[in-house]
Write a protein that binds this DNA or RNA. Structure first.
Lengths: 283, 283
DNA sequence: CTATGCATGTCGATA
DNA sequence: TATCGACGTGCATAG
């Protein structure tokens, strides 16, 4: 009797992980329009960024309405559901739709590619009809870079709170964004002689509107404190001629201050804080 | 003696015109950085539109200043000398420079591509440093399409000039953009009872500022014509609650009018004019 | 939603 | 160039 054959099967699974290099730019031009439609729908569903370059016309209906005849343009769909149509010139898009749009991609008359971006509120529609698409691609961009802006009005506010002498010696700031009837006072303080001071900040040349704004706040504070003297100071890098006239008429004051100088002050302040940290904590 | 040889040379020039198909999109990625530099310079000199997609950081110094750390973005250079840097989200570019910039393309540290956009006035600089360029292309777009926008404030003005009864029966418009002390009166007319009428137009919900503006104009006209009654009418699709209160306090009036209805009136007007042309001229 | 004010606002017209 | 006002302003924030 032949010995029983013992077969043992050992199953070995080999797991292969396909590590492909990430392709941030995938070109999908040179395809049949119908293929392109499904590619675009696929990309949009996955909230990819999409570029389209081609011959198109654009219609917009919403708060206003507009038409744009056929021409060659760049269309950008972004991950946040915004869209923009760029002509070869102008920094601003000729048509656009803000974030959170719903995109529809369709083939119309079997030979035109239509991108429709619908915004819910206010109800607005942008229709792009491509007669020809020269190029299109799906982008998979990773952007975690921090964006920092300096010399904003907010920087001016913080700088003056830290260094009130940027405006005037002896000034003490007692509140910021102080709510009053018509809005909020940028900065509010008391001067060396005990007078209330209303500060209105502008990061660029102050115009008449800035003066009107300041005046409203000063009047409100005067109404609240009939027995205190109240000063109104417009703080800006410059003031227009008309605004200066109005300012003088209303017995308000102007203090020239460059927002960049404020950014400088803040930068120095940050360094000081870091140095203090270093000597106190790290040593 | 052998006969003299007479050689005659006739030069025939054959002119060959190389008619190549226009290529609106030329991709210049996958090149050595140094090659790319010269390609980009070449394109920029010829005022071509350029797209760049890659890993970059951005610095801006000018009216304000900003920094943006490394991340993957789309950069667009346009034919008018404007530039914009787009993140994968936001309809607005994170950094930009308006038209008429001067562009510089350089290789820095032998391995980074730098695009520098310089604006003359105000003096501003945007620096883009590419660590990596995934894709770049030169676009040669032709865009002669006419852009038309309807339902703007200007449309409202024209519609009311043609059809004053959009505001009120018996109103006659006597001037537009009438210059007065603080600015320009949108529309100025006389009502059925011979009173002066100052019209302030807004294409969207009117706020307090609109009322302040109207009030200033009305006061100026009253000053000029102390013996005439003067009305001030705010014409807008809607008015904010605060603005309505202020309006009543100042004894001004509000006339609801939709800019789209104005666009409609104009469209009808244009059709009529065309019909008139047809019957008078073309027949 | 409405109201308010900033923005590297942009853009165009005008003095 | 400086000023002024409109804009599909956009955008954030507060109530």
């Amino acid at each position: 009797m032949p010995p029983a054959l013992n077969y043992r099967f050992q199953l070995i699974f080999i797991v292969v992980e396909l590590v492909d290099e990430r392709r941030p730019v995938r070109i999908i031009s040179d395809r049949q329009l119908s293929e392109m439609v499904s590619d675009l729908r696929h990309a949009i569903e996955r909230r990819k960024m999409v570029l389209l370059i081609g011959l198109c016309k654009v219609d917009y209906r919403g708060r206003a309405s507009s038409t744009l005849d056929y021409g060659e343009r760049l269309v950008i769909l972004k991950t946040d559901g915004s869209i923009q149509i760029h002509r070869p010139w102008d920094v601003n898009p000729v048509n656009w739709q803000p974030p959170d749009c719903i995109f529809h991609v369709d083939l119309v008359d079997n030979s035109f590619l239509r991108i429709r971006a619908i915004r819910k509120s206010p109800r607005e529609i942008v229709d792009i009809i491509f007669k020809e698409v020269y190029f299109s691609s799906v982008l998979d961009l990773v952007d975690k870079g921090v964006f920092s802006l300096y010399a904003s009005e907010h920087d001016m506010q913080r700088a003056i709170m830290i260094n009130p002498e940027l405006v005037e010696d002896g000034l003490r700031i007692i509140s910021y964004e102080k709510p009053v009837e018509p809005g909020f006072i940028d900065l509010y303080g008391i001067d060396s002689k005990g007078r209330f001071v209303v500060l209105e900040l502008k990061r660029r040349v102050a115009d008449r509107d800035a003066i009107v704004q300041l005046s409203r706040y000063v009047e409100e504070i005067k109404r609240r404190s009939p027995y205190r003297e109240v000063r109104g100071i417009l703080v800006a890098p410059d003031i227009s001629r008309n605004a200066l006239t109005l300012l003088k008429t209303l017995h308000l004051e102007f203090k020239r201050l460059d927002p960049k100088k404020c950014a400088e002050v803040l930068r120095r302040k940050v360094s000081e804080v870091k140095l203090t940290d270093f000597f106190r904590g790290k040593q």
